[in-house]
């Protein structure tokens, strides 16, 4: 059974690149364009890993992670932050919220797949 990964990003191009890369590696992918959209798509399906951008309209990534962690079905789900800074406040804030993994933007497909595979193999 293929594992499902959700990608949350307000940039359609990033969503597309990530989706193509992940599908190519054998994952199922759910796309969401911001935190609110993502929250609404969490129910009714099983998602094995959530990858989320930090800065997004409507609901930012950190709030989204906090909200998702409140849901019984997602409190233990691994979450990965896409950050532009390698270190710093945002990464720590993400970790505090519950996203223990991170990936620094810009990234290339192999880096993404490596990072994802450490958490969930297809």
């Amino acid at each position: 059974m293929a594992k499902t990964i959700m990608i949350v990003d307000d940039s359609a191009s990033i969503r597309q690149v990530v989706t193509i890369a992940l599908k190519g590696a054998g994952y199922d992918v759910v796309e969401a364009c911001d935190g609110k959209d993502a929250l609404s798509k969490l129910t009714g399906q099983k998602i094995n890993l959530i990858i989320t951008d930090v800065n997004m309209p409507n609901m930012d990534g950190i709030t989204f992670v906090q909200e998702a962690k409140k849901l019984a079905a997602y409190k233990f789900t691994p979450m990965m932050m896409l950050t532009t800074e390698t270190a710093g406040d945002k990464k720590q804030a993400g970790k505090d919220a519950g996203a223990k993994a991170w990936l620094t933007k810009p990234f290339q497909a192999p880096t993404l797949l490596d990072a994802v595979a450490k958490l969930v193999l297809p």
Partner: peptide
């Protein structure tokens, strides 16, 4: 570790690669 979404088995599977 488990509560944080870190599954030791995942890392071991990745290590195998």
């Amino acid at each position: 570790a488990l509560r944080n979404g870190m599954d030791p088995l995942s890392f071991l599977r990745y290590l195998k690669t």
